[in-house]
């Protein structure tokens, strides 16, 4: 996947996170910088991420993927 594809993926995931949190989150968005992205909402983000990309994360991935970029990176791994 090239740079352009990666950018589109990050935008898609930022939109997904925005839909779940009910507020606009950019591609730099992360749990550390978006206050509403707390641990409980994170579960909702993960549920929707898994559903959208047909992935099933491990327990440790669920905890360690903390940003739009992390999620995009995980998607690219397949």
């Amino acid at each position: 996947m090239g740079m352009k594809d990666r950018s589109i993926l990050e935008l898609e995931i930022a939109k997904l996170v925005s839909d779940i949190l009910g507020e606009t989150v950019g591609i730099e968005g992360a749990r550390d910088t978006v206050p509403s992205w707390d641990s409980l909402r994170h579960v909702e983000v993960i549920f929707s991420f898994e559903e959208a990309y047909g992935l099933r994360l491990t327990e440790s991935e669920m905890a360690s993927l903390r940003s739009v970029k992390d999620l995009a990176e995980r998607t690219m791994k397949g």
Binding site: L16, D19, I20, G22, E44, F47, S48, E51, A52
Partner: peptide, 8 residues
């Protein structure tokens, strides 16, 4: 229906 569709 997915959670994301419900959310919007």
């Amino acid at each position: 229906i997915t959670r994301r569709e419900l959310a919007i």
